[in-house]
């Protein structure tokens, strides 16, 4: 039990849960600057997804091709979301 609590995956889970709460807070307290809050929550989501792919899905140990494919997905989706959001507002 103690080893589970100190497990790297458990610490990562704490970070992911904390980031979720932070996104919620940012979105609820963004009366003055919606764009900053929105870009922040999208970036936080991308960072969370990268951590899940890298550590939970163990892609950090996968052949280089797969690491590039997933980072490529993150880059394309991230840039498209943020660029479209900012350009069309």
């Amino acid at each position: 039990m103690a080893s589970t609590l100190r497990h790297p995956a458990t610490l990562l889970w704490l970070l992911l849960a904390g980031a979720t709460i932070l996104s919620w807070f940012l979105s609820g307290h963004s009366a003055s600057n919606h764009a900053l809050a929105t870009v922040s929550v999208i970036l936080i989501a991308l960072a969370k997804i990268r951590l899940i792919i890298w550590y939970f899905m163990e892609i950090r140990h996968a052949p280089a091709m797969w690491r590039w494919i997933f980072d490529g997905w993150l880059a394309v989706v991230g840039i498209a979301l943020i660029a479209l959001y900012l350009a069309l507002r």
Binding site: S23, S27, A37, A45, I49, I53
Partner: peptide, 19 residues
């Protein structure tokens, strides 16, 4: 299962938080 998780991680801010 992790993919199901990560897809929700982006659906959540897009549907519920983006303003």
């Amino acid at each position: 299962w992790h993919m199901v998780d990560l897809l929700w991680i982006m659906l959540f801010p897009l549907l519920y938080l983006v303003k």
